[in-house]
């Protein structure tokens, strides 16, 4: 219980005492909640109605950690009323060294709530991050020496979106797994388009567009998109001569009919590519 109360202290920005002393319940300008027949929690200030509701909810539902408030329907609304909006949800998943990872997150996100969602993952309600997800990843990997994945969700503006945003993190992870297998930072911004496409495909049934069956051409096209259709930068990234790249792009055009140097063809090809990848998973 004492550990849980620490989390509640951070959430309410107050000091909480866990006591059996009846006298503690009579302190002025404090708020007291009975836990059972013998114990009380004494909060060092008067709480607002919303805050009191949250604490009662916390106690009544026998919630073991803050994350459950988000996971439980209804509870998240109470919690979310105490949060600053807009905010993003960041899911930090790690392999080991849980205590070290938590200490690092608490030192980095001093003003944000950190929720334990499983033994190997925390969700942070990030109002304004002082560091990028990639920086958090490298801090954790270099300090706690454990491998990490970070997923950052869509920016949300209202409490009602909180639960959906939480569930979206898992969806983003699955989608990223289909499309970019080795990325350790998965950002909603990078997957907005595939996410939209996935929801359309799911609602409309499956279609399988014709796709290339040549991993070299596929890789070439993806790197070309990553470099905003820039021939020079793509050639450098692939470590090939620009003439080789042009040869491959011509070959891609012959095979698929798309000249991805042109914006319209590029977007059509990219759509087909995503549909192909997502369809394969749905199938």
């Amino acid at each position: 219980m004492k550990d849980r109360l620490k989390e509640l202290e951070i959430l309410l920005e107050c000091d909480i005492e866990y006591t059996t002393e009846q006298s503690a319940t009579r302190r002025s300008n404090h708020t007291v909640f009975p836990v059972d027949g013998h114990h009380f929690i004494v909060i060092d200030r008067k709480l607002s109605a919303t805050e009191s509701k949250l604490v009662r909810y916390w106690l009544e539902k026998n919630i073991t950690n803050e994350s459950a408030i988000i996971l439980e329907e209804g509870g998240y609304v109470q919690l979310s009323k105490l949060q600053r909006f807009p905010l993003n949800l960041w899911r930090v998943a790690f392999k080991e060294s849980r205590e070290d990872v938590l200490a690092i997150l608490q030192s980095t996100f001093t003003k944000d709530v950190i929720l334990e969602v499983s033994q190997n993952a925390f969700v942070i309600l990030v109002s304004e991050s002082p560091v990028t997800p990639a920086e958090v990843l490298s801090i954790i990997e270099s300090e706690a020496l454990t491998s990490v994945h970070i997923i950052t969700g869509e920016r949300i503006h209202h409490p009602e979106e909180l639960r959906k945003a939480y569930l979206q993190l898992n969806m983003l992870y699955d989608l990223a797994h289909k499309l970019k297998q080795h990325s350790r930072v998965i950002r909603y911004e990078d997957l907005r388009f595939p996410l939209l496409l996935q929801s359309i495909l799911k609602s409309q049934g499956k279609q399988t567009p014709n796709m290339i069956n040549d991993s070299e051409l596929e890789q070439t096209a993806l790197v070309f998109f990553d470099h905003n259709l820039n021939i020079t930068e793509t050639a450098q990234a692939l470590f090939i001569h620009r003439n080789t790249l042009i040869y491959r792009l011509n070959k891609l055009e012959t095979v698929t009919g798309y000249d991805i140097r042109k914006f319209n063809d590029a977007i059509s090809f990219y759509l087909s590519y995503l549909m192909h990848k997502i369809n394969r998973e749905i199938a």
């Binding site: 030192s107 801090i139 454990t146 491998s147």
Partner: peptide, 16 residues
């Protein structure tokens, strides 16, 4: 990893 007596330095040298 923490028992391998190694230290890592990354491209993203974020500090607290």
């Amino acid at each position: 990893p923490k028992d391998r007596n190694i230290a890592m330095v990354f491209q993203n040298y974020a500090l607290y």
